[in-house]
Structures are given as structure tokens and as C-alpha cells.
Amino acid sequence: MSEAPDTQRGLLATFGRDGLMQIILIANSVLMLFPIVIMVFSGFKSNIEIFQSPFSIPDFTDLSNFTAMATQSNFLRYLFNSFFVTGVSIILILILGLMASYALGRYAFRGSAFVLLFFMAGLMLPLKLAIIPLFVLFRDLGFLNSHLSLVAVYVAMGLPSTIFIMTGFIRTLPRELEDAARMDGASEARIMWSIMLPLCRPAMVIAAIYNLVPIWNDFFFPLVFIQDDNLKTLPQGMTTFIGEFVTNWGVMFAGLTLAAAPITIVYIILSKQFINGMTSGAVK
């Protein structure tokens, strides 16, 4: 039988291949994490330390760069603005998205296909290229230099994907529960609120994460709409404080570390949900 040597050769090949794959993966993870680690380390160093020994482990008890960033710049203000704008946008996206998806996914009515198509068109249209009319519109509405402009754009940008994700999900929910409730004389609003809404939670989490990262990180729209330093969000505010501390590398690295911290921590805790959520548009 020639089976034995064959299996053996197969096993050896498998070990060799797996070893190579493991090396590729480790090398890549080092390449991914090394810059982040250097960023955090440098946040604890002075200029001289960064220039002379860029790779050394710093004294982690020296928080002077971080306190300089927090007290001498508008950093905390930017952070608060980012939380505020992102939070309000996500809540509105979920409320409006749920309303539309519930109507489209739960009821058959004339024109529903057209309405769905109307929302889906938003998936294809890059809103960035409509920045000039948006600028004029917001000027006329008095939204310029106000968080209203950002919330309006983010909600409009987030709705199509949210409706896409949630309509698909709501359609798969069983009909028995709501039929029974309807027999008992419950109103449509009551059925939606107390029976269907709790079932929609998984889809709402996916939709929230899908929109969270681009909104939290957005730089383009505040760049055009917001001038007042006290209204800037974190990514936009970063250009300001980097400019202020341009000769102090330690403080710049501390600022980048602080700016990266909130989303990184949430990502590490919820990595599975983040990866599923952010690739959900592409994985179908």
C-alpha cells in the first residue's frame, strides 16, 4: 500500500504550511501593533527620550504630557462634542431607521418597493460630493457652525444602511406573536413597541456599530461646517492641538493616544460585534 508514505508526506506538508502561515500572521500582527505601541510609549516620553531612544520602555508614572494635553488644549471639549454628536446621531438613526424598516418589513402596501428603493439609493450616493449644496442649504437653514449640521448629515448618511440591515431582519421575525396580540385588540403602535421592538435588538446593535465608527471618526463634514473651536469634534480638533504642540512630540503622541483610546477600548471589549457589524455591509 502506498498510502502510508503519502499520508506522512501530507502531514509534513501540513506542518510546513501551517508553520509558514503562523509566521505570516505573527509578522503581520507585529506590524499592526508596533506603531500603536510606539505611539502609546512616546506619550510618556520627553522630546529628548523620543529622539534618542525611540523604542525604549518609558516611565509609565510620568503623566505630564497627558495632563498638558488635557489642561492646555481644548481636548476635553472636543471629546465631549464627539460623544454628543455621535450619541444623538446614532439614537436618531435607530429611531428613524426602525420606523421606516418596520413599515417596510411588516406591512404590505402599494409603493413599498419604490420607498425601499428610494432609501437604498442612498447606499450608492457618496454624500461627500454633494458638500457644496449641503453647505448652501445649511447656510440658509442657519445650521452652519452648529452641531445640527453634523447630526443632519450623519443621520441621512446612516439611514440607508440601517434600513437595509433592519428591514431584512424584521422580515424574518415570526408573525404569530403580533397576530395574537392583534386578536386581543392591541393597537399597531402597541404591538410595535412592546412585542416587536425587543425582538429587533440584535439588528439594532449591528446597525449602531456599523454607523458608530464612521460617525465618530468623521473629519470631512466638520472641516467644512464647523469653525468655532468650542464646537469641534475630536478628529477635527486634533488638527488644532497638533498645530499647538507641533514642537512637543511627547504631547502630540499623548494627544493621539488619548484620542485613540475611547474607540480602541470599546473595540477590544466588543471586538466580535465590531467586526461583524463593520463587515455586515459587505458580507451577505
Partner: peptide, 29 residues
């Protein structure tokens, strides 16, 4: 393989970071 979960989380980490952070970080680098 062993550690695949870790590698998965590591490779996706920069994706969640703001382009502004990444841009400034590498500009300094």
C-alpha cells in the same frame, strides 16, 4: 491556527481608528 482570534483582532484594530490619528501618527513616524 493557535492565536487566530488574537491576529484577527490585531489586523482590524487600525480600521476602527480615525484617519486623522493614523495620518498624524505616520507623519511623525
Amino acid at each position: 491556527l493557535w492565536g487566530a482570534r488574537f491576529h484577527r483582532v490585531a489586523v482590524f484594530l487600525p480600521v476602527v481608528l480615525s484617519t486623522v490619528i493614523i495620518g498624524y501618527l505616520w507623519k511623525l513616524f
